[in-house]
Structures are given as C-alpha cells and as structure tokens.
Simulated scan of single mutants.
Amino acid sequence: MNFNFLSPVSDLVLAHSELLSTQALGRKLKIHSAQLGIPDLKDVNIAIIGVLENRNDINYIGEEFQLNEIRKAFYSLFPGSWNTTVADLGDIHKGETVEDTYFAVKEAISVLVQKKIIPVILGGSQDLTYANYRAYDDLIPMVNIVNVDAQFNLGDSTKPIKNNSFVGKIILDEPYNLFNYATIGYQTYFNAREELDLMDSLYFESYRLGEVSHDITSVEPALRDANIVSIDLNVIKGSELGLNQRYSPNGLDGKEICAIARYAGISNKVSSFGIYEYKPSKDDDMTSLLIAQMLWYFIEGVNYRVLDDDFSDENNYQKFTTLIEEEDLVFYKSNKTGRWWIEIPFLSEVNNKLKRHTLLPCTHQDYKDACNNIIPERWYKAFQKNCV
C-alpha cells in the first residue's frame, strides 16, 4: 500500500523543530518530510495524519487552513517515560471532491489499523468521522463510536452529509456496522428534542456536560468500550480557546478534555482517535497548544495500556453476583487495574453479531447501585440493543 495522497510536513515546521532541545518530541518522532519521504512504519504504534478538508462544514465559505501551529506546539513538548513510537505522516489535502478525501482517509486508516498502528486524525470538519467509521467495514463486525461534542450530530440523513449530520448517515447507510454511539459533554440547548428522543429510542448513550464535569470518571467505561473516539473542539469552553475557535461560554475545560483524551488512550479497544473542527486564527497559540496537550495525553494513555480484560484465568479477576428483579447481574473486577465489567446475557435465539459484546465496561458505582436494587443504565441499554 502506498500513501501517495499524503503530503509531507512543511519545511517551516521541520526548521522550527531543528531549534528544539534534543529531548523534545519533535526530535524523536518519525516524520514524513519532502527530503526523506514517508518513514518506515516498523515498530510505529501511533501515526498522526492531518486532513485539510472542511468543505462539508455548514459554515464553509471557502477558507483554507493548515496545521503548522499544532505541529509546532506538539513538537515542542517533552515525552513522558514512553515506550511508544509515534510517526507524523503529514497531511491529506482536499481531493477533487469531498468523497475523494473520504476515500483517502478511509484507505489510510484501514491500512494503519490492520498494521496495529493507531491513526490520530487532526481534522477540519467532523464529518470526516464518517470516513473513519467506513474504514472499519472490512475490519470488525460491529463498531462503537464515542463523540465528545456539545451536539449529537444526528441531523437529517436524507440530506447531503454535513458536519452536523454525519451520525445520521453512519446509522442509516449500509453496511450497518454501528453497535453503540455515545456522546460525551452534550449541552441540551444545542440539541432538538427529537434528537434527544431518538438517542433514547436507539438506546444510545449520552452524558450531559454537567454530569461529566461533576465526575469525569463516569465517562471512562464508554471510552473503554469505544473503537473510534471523535472530539469536536466545540465541546470546549470558549474561554479556553482562541478567538476564531470559540463556540460556547460553557463546555469542558482544558483539564477535562485532556483527561478524556487519556481515558481514550488507556482503552485497549480504541484503535483510531480524531480531533476536529480546528479553525486557526492569527496569534492563537492557545488552541494549538491545547490540541498538542490532548495529543500528548492520548499518547500517554496508550503507553500505559494494560491487558486487563482477559477473564479466562480466574487469578486475573474477582467475580460478584447481585440479584435485581429476578435478574442475576454478574460483575467482574480486574485484579490488575481495579476496572469493572458487567456481563450482558447473550441471547442465543437472537441472530446477531454481538458475541464479543457480552462483557460491558462499567464503574464500581454501577456495582454499588446494583447492590441497592438499581439497574445500571449502561447495562439496560446494551441489553435492550442485544434484544433488537
């Protein structure tokens, strides 16, 4: 597979990188340069790809953008004590049509995931998540997506795809591979009542901004269960970002969005990660530095992944059973990490592809609720989806 559609990281960024400390990230990455070409991907764990496509933004008026400031900020950071090798493969430029760009994104992600390399997409408009999702068509039977966003982006799936309606296309376009869709950090006043009702009727998960800010750990199980994590920068509080980037006075703060990026990294299942809706403006160091720190925390998380979901050996876990309304709820707690799972009864009479979904990540609080006769909401929604 060649990556002919990837253009190298700009000489401007590389020149900036040469001035950095030899310990900085920019001196340790494998970088696609005009001089040396695409680096050898052997031993690479994470690959950064910029996608300069924003034509399906509902507010698009022909503006171009580039990612140099994010790269400069990221390259300037220092790595943790990582064993993770990171490559920067450069950018996918706009194709002749948006569909051409989607095809290039889909191809790149598909190849990288098959090589066990996690693609990190730095994007224009968030509809690129659709291309990311389609890359999994031939890879796994069912896909879980987490969207960290102020809006659900369900939209009207009968209309052409836009950055505020791509999830509707994901749900309704064949092949149907979506199992679960979860939105983290949504703000009710940005979402039509019909979309909230649709989320409920499809048994999808949604975490309100207040809920997330009150207890950031509540979203960890959803991220642990995700294959794709897509972050819309509009979920971040306006005061944390540069002038062009501000969307809402309310939103997640820098610390919360970095914690979410780290949870996504620690998840053994997350195999692609994207940050979208970047709108650079002059003298906006704040947005690019926050994105750089989100990337840093994601890589930090990947570096600390622990295979704690092997329940074939009884020494690896503790098992707990509670009874609610004549239903046995079975919980597992990893001895390695202390993380929790709950068993979803597999319905043999239902012809579905969900055998691998019989263990669902959950929290210790879910177990405590079950002991008090409260059915955990994640379990209920997953069970209902299993029955459909």
Rank of each mutant, 00 (worst) to 15 (best):
L77V: 11
L77S: 14
P79L: 02
P79F: 05
G80V: 13
G80C: 00
W82N: 03
W82S: 02
W82Y: 11
W82I: 07
N83K: 15
N83G: 15
N83L: 08
D88Q: 00
D88T: 05
D88H: 01
D88C: 13
L89W: 03
G90V: 00
D91Y: 05
I92E: 02
I92W: 04
H93S: 15
H93E: 15
K94A: 13
E96K: 08
T97D: 09
E99D: 08
E99M: 04
D100Y: 08
T101F: 00
T101G: 03
T101L: 07
Y102F: 08
F103H: 13
V105T: 01
E107Q: 15
E107S: 15
A108M: 10
I109V: 03
I109H: 12
S110K: 13
L112M: 03
V113K: 07
V113A: 00
Q114L: 12
K115W: 05
K116S: 08
I118A: 13
V120C: 01
V120R: 07
I121G: 02
I121K: 03
G123M: 00
S125K: 14
S125Q: 07
S125N: 09
D127F: 15
D127W: 14
L128G: 09
L128E: 09
Y130H: 07
N132L: 04
N132E: 02
N132H: 05
Y133N: 10
Y133S: 12
Y133K: 13
Y133V: 13
R134Y: 07
Y136E: 10
D137M: 10
D138F: 08
I140V: 06
P141M: 07
V143K: 00
N144E: 04
N144V: 11
